Simulated assay, not measured.
Amino acid sequence: MKVTLSDDARQYLGFFEEETGATATDCLVYEDRLVLLVAAGDMSTAIGPGGRTIRRFEERVGREVDLVENADTPTAFVESALAPAAVRHVTISEQGDRVAYVEVDEADRGVAIGKRGRNIEAARKLARRHHEIDDVQLT
């Protein structure tokens, strides 16, 4: 599936790669934060020692930055998009709409949802854009 990026998103991606040395393939731009999809295996480069690299990037862009590590399979992708929540299992339903049903530890349900639903919404948007999943539901 082809992802269309806004001019702002493309600029943030370029700046992110320049600042961190990590590869990112997608960027969701919100008023107060960015959600970047980092290439598999580049997460440690993006974060840097003790989190210094990502903190420096956040300071320069003046926004909070959330990182999601890319994955090849839809189930692994959804699990990564909801991190750091402890995901027990992901099932993709193919009947009608394509829906990812996610079992999350009860203690991590709030983490998966996020403040005002922002984490689950970002996971839904990224899953739709990269794996054609229509919805992500917590069970």
Results as ranks from 00 to 15, higher is better:
M1D: 11
M1T: 12
T4R: 15
D7A: 13
D7Y: 08
D8N: 11
D8W: 02
D8H: 09
R10I: 15
R10V: 15
Q11N: 13
G14V: 10
G14Q: 12
F16I: 05
E17F: 08
E17P: 04
E18C: 00
E18D: 12
E18T: 12
E18I: 04
E19R: 13
E19G: 00
T20P: 08
A22E: 03
A24G: 15
D26N: 12
C27D: 04
L28V: 09
L28C: 02
L28S: 02
L28A: 06
V29R: 03
Y30E: 15
Y30W: 10
E31D: 15
D32S: 12
R33Q: 09
L34I: 07
L36M: 14
L37S: 01
A39R: 15
A40D: 11
A40G: 01
G41N: 10
D42T: 00
D42E: 10
A46S: 08
G50R: 15
T53D: 00
I54L: 08
R55Q: 14
R55M: 09
R55D: 12
E58Y: 03
V61L: 02
V65T: 11
V65Y: 07
V65G: 09
V68H: 03
V68S: 03
E69R: 01
N70Y: 09
D72K: 01
D72C: 00
D72F: 01
T73N: 03
T73M: 05
T75F: 02
A76T: 07
F77Y: 10
V78G: 03
E79S: 14
S80Y: 00
A83M: 13
A86C: 09
R88G: 11
R88W: 04
H89F: 11
V90C: 07
T91Q: 14
T91V: 15
E94F: 08
R98A: 03
A100G: 08
Y101F: 14
E106P: 10
E106H: 11
E106G: 07
A107F: 05
R109T: 10
G110F: 07
I113Y: 01
G114T: 07
G114L: 07
K115E: 11
G117V: 04
G117R: 07
R118S: 13
R118W: 07
R118F: 10
I120K: 04
I120H: 02
I120T: 06
A122G: 09
A123M: 09
R124V: 03
K125H: 11
L126C: 03
A127I: 03
R128L: 13
H130W: 15
H130S: 02
H130E: 08
E132T: 09
E132K: 08
I133E: 02
D134G: 13
D135E: 14
V136K: 00
Q137S: 11
Q137D: 04
Q137Y: 04
Q137R: 15
Q137F: 01
T139L: 13
T139E: 14
